[in-house]
Every structure is written in structure tokens, then in C-alpha cells.
């Protein structure tokens, strides 16, 4: 059986919130190392890969592999009943029909309990090759959100260009064009505002802004976001969570004719 308790429901609420508009039905794959999820959007252009390691929970118990087939819209309805600071416990039997969720507000001695019906989901699982990326950019997640939102007003797509001088986001549309350039920036007193560019070779790729703005719904999960790029491979956008847990998005590039 699975039993996994989080000190605050916040993490799980925010993670589900971040992916629910991209993927609808998906399996939460539980085993002794934690709870993982991999799902593609309907158009097979974007992929979500989430890993909540066992260490993120206290306690965490899962004796065998359990796949929880969940409709995220339904899960969102249940999670709406959880206070952000409630403790959240997920429980399931070995061959479960339901996922049991318990929210506890210890200060109020209030316990709420829900059973969410599960479904059988036959999901394609993709092997993601280990990639040595040409450029890895770490930047404030709020800044990335602002850039994608601002450029969305100009165009459907953005070209991300990483060079030794910095990273440039540029868009060209019907009304004109726009760009934002960030240079490496490491303020000692404000680590959350750090912009770091690791570059083995310059790279420029074009992506759909519709998907990138969608990924930015994960912004509340982490102050920093990591963008990993290599020529002609999918972009990886990573929101790192405590203890090595993460929420990653992969996005296939737009390719010139």
C-alpha cells in the first residue's frame, strides 16, 4: 500500500495546478523511491515529468509499484478543499480503485477525507535520453514568466539565443518585434535574482510561447527556473524542488522549413 504525508498541502496543490492545463489523465507511478509522473500533452509537443522523492514526504511508505490513474481536473476539485497549510496524506491500496486524501488542519482539529475514483490509463512512456546541453540558463522563475507573457503579446513564438554575452529572448509578429536580453548576474545579497549561464557552445532555438506560458504556471513552486538547450533537441524547463524533487517540462522546437 501507499501512504505518503506532506507537512503542507501547498507543494502538491501547486504541482497539480501547474500541469492540469497541459495534461488531463495521467498515472502517478508510486514506488519506494517516491511518486513520479510522466505525461505528454494531446499534441505530443510538450511533456511533463514530475518526481516527488520519498524524502519529500514524512512518512513515506510504498511496498510495491502502484500506478494511480488520475483525472487531473477531478483531482484539482478535491485539492481545492485542502488548505495550503494543511497536512496532506495520500493513501492507496495495492490494486486501488480510489486514492484516499486526508487534509488536516492541526490548529483547528479539523480533518477532511476524500476518496477520488481512479481510472485505468494506458500511457505511452517515453525514454528521455541523457543530454549534455549546450546551454544551461538559471534565472528567476518570475522573470521567465514575465518574459513569456510580454513576448506573447508580440508573437506566437520566441527564439531563445544563448551566447557568451547573455541570453536573448526575441519575437517577431504582425505589429513589430521585441526582445529581452539577460546577462549573467549574481547579486550576493539576493540569490533568488541570480542569472547564470553555463555555455559549452552558442545555441539558438525557436519555441511556441503558448506552451512556455503554460509551463510558467509552475512558478510558485520555485524561485529559480532552469532552461536547458541544445541544437535541435527539445528544451528542458526545470523547476527544482527541495531534496532533489523536480517538475520538468520538455518542449519540441519549431523547425525551419
Amino acid at each position: 500500500m501507499l501512504e505518503a504525508r506532506l507537512d503542507t498541502a501547498n507543494l502538491f496543490k501547486s504541482a497539480v495546478d501547474a500541469i492540469k492545463d497541459l495534461v488531463q489523465d495521467c498515472n502517478f507511478d508510486c514506488n519506494d523511491s517516491g511518486i513520479a509522473l510522466q505525461a505528454m500533452d494531446n499534441s505530443h509537443v510538450a511533456l511533463v515529468s514530475m518526481m516527488l522523492k520519498a524524502e519529500a514526504f514524512s512518512p513515506f511508505r510504498c511496498d510495491r509499484n502502484i500506478a494511480l490513474g488520475v483525472n487531473l481536473t477531478s483531482l484539482t476539485k478535491v485539492l481545492r478543499a485542502a488548505g495550503r497549510d494543511d497536512t496532506l496524506t495520500l493513501k492507496a491500496e495495492d490494486a486501488p480503485d480510489v486514492l484516499n486524501l486526508v487534509f488536516e488542519a492541526t490548529a483547528q482539529d479539523r480533518i477532511s477525507e476524500y476518496d477520488l475514483k481512479l481510472m485505468d490509463i494506458d500511457q505511452e512512456h517515453l525514454g528521455i535520453p541523457d543530454t549534455e546541453y549546450a546551454a544551461t540558463i538559471s534565472m528567476p522563475s518570475a522573470e521567465f514568466k514575465r518574459i513569456t507573457t510580454d513576448l506573447m503579446a508580440m508573437s506566437e513564438s520566441v527564439t531563445i539565443e544563448a551566447t557568451k554575452d547573455g541570453v536573448k529572448f526575441s519575437s517577431t509578429g504582425d505589429i513589430g518585434n521585441g526582445s529581452i536580453t539577460l546577462r549573467q548576474h549574481t547579486p550576493v545579497d539576493k540569490p533568488n535574482e541570480t542569472v547564470e549561464i553555463e555555455l559549452s557552445e552558442p545555441v539558438a532555438l525557436t519555441f511556441s510561447l503558448k506552451y512556455l506560458t503554460n509551463f510558467c504556471k509552475a512558478q510558485p513552486l520555485s524561485n529559480q527556473v532552469k532552461l536547458c538547450l541544445s541544437a535541435e533537441v527539445p528544451l528542458m524547463v526545470e523547476y527544482g524542488l527541495e531534496g532533489g524533487s523536480y517538475l520538468r517540462f520538455y518542449l519540441a522546437p519549431k523547425i525551419g522549413d
Partner: peptide
């Protein structure tokens, strides 16, 4: 013009 690639082109089915 550019066209949107899909992930199947890059990732293999596990």
C-alpha cells in the same frame, strides 16, 4: 516559416 516538431522525433518509446 517554421513548423512545430513533435517529441516522438526526439524521444523513443520506453
Amino acid at each position: 516559416g517554421s513548423r512545430q516538431a513533435t517529441l516522438g522525433k526526439f524521444f523513443t518509446q520506453a
